[in-house]
């Protein structure tokens, strides 16, 4: 069976700028694909082509096996899309707006009412249904646009920065909602909030300068960080300075550096240094508050792959 979303060799050029270069990937049912990348990397352009808003210069997009260029209207029936900036008709009320969307989606009467009720409940819009969208806060506007994308319970969801502008509680609610829906759908979300990838995505693609520069599960990507498997020691500065010489002498240690909490020991790639470090600490007789292994930080990987090599602060350690 064909994957729910199949993207092959997508390219788009705006004038002299290559916005998207040879982007290919598949998303199966049950997957939540996180689209990461710096601003202007081509995330939104790629999403616009996947949803059929923008015609690619070359490449194909198939939704449930249907080529969106061949059958633009049919391929959109099972697609829910929240464009960048969460646009909606601001003079309307959420109820009027969702009623319009329901009509376009072919629902009428009590079925339309049920759909609207479900979508407004999922996005917690109940309290503002009768206020013009114009007068709503940014978080509500975003949720109105989200409700629009969910209204027909599509099996394919493409959400461009779904949690942008929401407060932490609302972010949590939207992430929970995405997680709940995930098993039944193929979902693409774009974000530049890296914690979101850990929270909801089963896979992440990092785009820079229009190209895919990394593709894997959040864990796989984290393991590419040079902090991956590093050991972090929380202790006073004097203690750390005394420990440094012994730790630096260990096999498998690339570098030990002081940071705000104590000491961070960077391993040579692939080596497990927790136990040897523990031994050194134990033998020294000094007391430390905590010793633990780090998973690696997506942020470091993100920076390493999205900043052109040479200027890349790849693994410069502890910037705030």
């Amino acid at each position: 069976m064909a994957a729910m979303i199949e993207v092959e060799g997508l390219c788009k050029r705006f004038g002299s700028i290559q916005a998207v270069v040879d982007v290919s990937f598949k998303v199966e049912r049950g997957e939540v694909l996180g689209f990461l990348g710096p601003n202007g990397a081509g995330k939104s352009t790629a999403m616009r082509m996947i949803t059929g808003f923008l015609e690619p210069d070359s490449g194909t997009v198939r939704l449930e096996g249907v080529d969106i260029q061949d059958q633009p209207i049919a391929s959109r029936q099972n697609l829910g899309y929240m464009p960048e900036g969460a646009p909606s008709y601001h003079e309307m009320t959420p109820l009027g707006f969702l009623g319009f969307i329901a009509g376009i989606r072919g629902f009428s009467g009590s079925e339309a009412e049920d759909r609207i009720a479900t979508a407004t409940q999922q996005t917690q819009l109940g309290s503002v249904l009768y206020q013009p969208i114009d007068t709503l806060s940014r978080g509500f506007k975003r949720r109105v646009a989200l409700a629009q994308a969910l209204l027909h319970d599509p099996e394919i969801l493409v959400l461009d920065e779904p949690t942008d502008g929401l407060d932490p509680n609302q972010k949590h609610e939207v992430r929970t909602l995405i997680q709940e829906m995930a098993p039944r759908k193929a979902i693409i979300i774009s974000t530049h909030i890296l914690e979101e990838v850990d929270a909801v995505c089963s896979r992440a693609i990092i785009i820079a300068h229009g190209r895919i520069v990394a593709d894997g599960t959040p864990d796989e990507l984290e393991s590419r960080s040079d902090r991956h498997m590093g050991v972090s020691i929380t202790a006073t500065r004097e203690t750390c300075q005394q420990l440094m010489a012994g730790i630096n002498a260990l096999d498998g240690v690339a570098e030990a550096e002081l940071d705000s909490r104590g000491l961070f020991v960077k391993p040579v790639r692939g080596s497990d240094i927790l136990d040897p470090v523990r031994v050194v600490v134990g033998q020294s007789g000094l007391s430390v508050a905590d010793i633990r292994v780090e998973r690696g930080r997506l942020e470091d990987v993100f920076r390493a792959v999205t900043i052109p090599s040479g200027t890349g602060p790849s693994g410069t350690g502890d910037r705030p």
Binding site: R48, R76, I101, I104, R105
Partner: peptide, 8 residues
């Protein structure tokens, strides 16, 4: 973008 990605 919303309008033209609906089935319209």
């Amino acid at each position: 973008e919303l309008l033209l990605t609906l089935p319209v």
